[in-house]
């Protein structure tokens, strides 16, 4: 039995296009909608699985009130309770988010028992800071494993696996611990109709952090210059094969 807290972040869904706000300080998500990163979808799935045998799974997000949408998505797939830490995204840097999350971890579950395991995505899809989970671990004085694909909890130990340079790396870390997740080890489930109904009615525990933010150092955002298309179409179908092989020969990639 294990109490798990999974941390998620509402981010603009930029899979199709990216627009900046007029002041170039943020990505404008109004027309593309919002989501959470694939890593976090996997972290939510792992949290639900880890808590399946009588434990609890909670979800937390630090950010605007709109993040309730993403918290409800997690509730719809089996997470039991949700905490929203209301904060100004623009003012909070990665160290500030970690500090705000640490407050939630230290407060424990709704019935006051401690969280044994905290899961996060390896990196947020928008700011790509690659550090919140690790900073959180230091704030809590807990060990941290980064970039894992699978977890298994038994006898107060979390065993993780993840791809390393020489094969699958296995860690066995005593709880309490922090683990950051990379997609690839588990398939996130889809919400059931019942799950959605339950999530819609669930209460979101909204809190205010006591963190004085240090900020994120952002000066401005810019889009890389879009190049006009200069594509050379070599042909259509199998008939274009000789032209493509000519190109490979010119480039010298066919050395044999």
């Amino acid at each position: 039995m294990v109490n798990v807290l999974v941390c998620i972040k509402r981010v603009p869904d930029t899979s199709e296009s990216v627009l900046l706000t007029d002041d170039a300080m943020a990505v404008d998500g109004r027309h593309v909608g919002y989501t959470v990163s694939p890593h976090e979808l996997c972290a939510v799935e792992l949290a639900v699985q880890a808590a399946a045998d009588g434990g609890t799974a909670g979800v937390v997000s630090v950010g605007s009130g709109d993040a309730v949408e993403q918290l409800r998505d997690a509730l719809a797939v089996g997470v039991q309770h949700a905490v929203l830490v209301e904060a100004d995204d623009a003012a909070f840097g990665p160290a500030d988010v970690a500090a705000a999350l640490a407050e939630v971890v230290e407060a424990g579950t709704p019935d006051g028992t401690p969280y044994d395991l905290v899961l996060l995505g390896n990196d947020a899809a928008d700011t790509g800071d690659f550090q919140v989970g690790i900073r959180l671990a230091y704030a809590l004085g807990r060990p941290v494993v980064s970039g894992v694909s699978t977890i298994a909890v038994s006898d107060g130990v979390v065993q993780t696996t993840g791809a390393g340079p020489a094969g699958t790396e296995v860690f066995e870390v005593p709880l309490p611990a922090v683990v950051t997740v990379m997609e690839g080890g588990v398939a996130p489930r889809y919400p059931s109709v019942m799950g959605r109904v339950k999530a819609k009615k669930a209460e979101i525990d909204t809190r205010t952090p006591s963190v004085t933010p240090r900020g994120n150092g952002r000066v401005r955002l810019k889009l890389p210059p879009e190049q006009p298309s200069q594509v050379v179409v070599l042909g259509e179908g199998a008939a274009a094969a000789p032209a493509l092989v000519d190109l490979f020969e010119t480039m010298g990639v066919l050395t044999k």
Partner: peptide, 21 residues
């Protein structure tokens, strides 16, 4: 956005390219 393109089904084009190589 590519420099070069071949339009068509990869399952026809790639085997033809392999044969040509």
């Amino acid at each position: 956005r590519a420099h070069y393109a071949v339009i068509g089904d990869l399952h026809e084009i790639v085997p033809a390219v392999n044969d040509e190589i």
